[in-house]
Amino acid sequence: QTQEFDNEEEARKAEKELRKENRRVTVTQENGRWRVTWD
């Protein structure tokens, strides 16, 4: 699953929550947008 964010702060917040659920999370930056991908 993927979700896009406008800034790193929001993306990192989402990453932190997903990691609490023991998910594999990848955060990438593309064209000024932050993308959080998880399984």
Rank of each mutant, 00 (worst) to 15 (best):
E30P: 02
E9S: 09
R23M: 14
Q1E: 11
R33M: 11
V36F: 02
R23V: 14
V36L: 08
E30A: 10
W38M: 05
E8G: 02
R23L: 14
G32V: 02
T2A: 08
R23A: 13
E9Q: 10
V25I: 06
W34N: 00
R35M: 10
Q29G: 06
T26Q: 07
G32K: 03
K20Y: 08
K13M: 11
E8F: 04
K13H: 12
E17V: 11
E4C: 14
K13N: 12
F5P: 01
E10L: 08
E21D: 12
R19Q: 10
W38V: 11
R23H: 14
K20S: 10
T37M: 07
Q1N: 14
R12H: 05
R33Q: 06
T28A: 06
R33E: 02
F5M: 02
D6I: 05
E9D: 11
D39I: 12
D39Q: 11
N22A: 08
R24Y: 14
R33K: 15
L18F: 08
T28H: 07
V36G: 00
K20T: 09
E9P: 08
N31I: 03
K13V: 12
W38S: 07
K16I: 13
V36M: 03
R35G: 01
L18G: 03
E21G: 11
E4R: 03
E17G: 06
E17K: 11
V27W: 01
T37E: 11
T2C: 14
K16G: 09
G32Q: 04
E30W: 10
W34D: 00
R35P: 00
V27I: 09
F5Y: 13
V36Q: 01
F5T: 01
R35N: 04
L18D: 01
R24S: 12
E9K: 08
K16R: 12
T26M: 10
V27A: 02
E30L: 12
E9L: 12
T26D: 05
R33H: 06
R12A: 03
Q3V: 12
E21P: 06
N31H: 07
K13E: 11
R12L: 08
A11P: 01
R23T: 11
V27Q: 00
K16Q: 13
T26H: 09
D39E: 15
T37P: 00
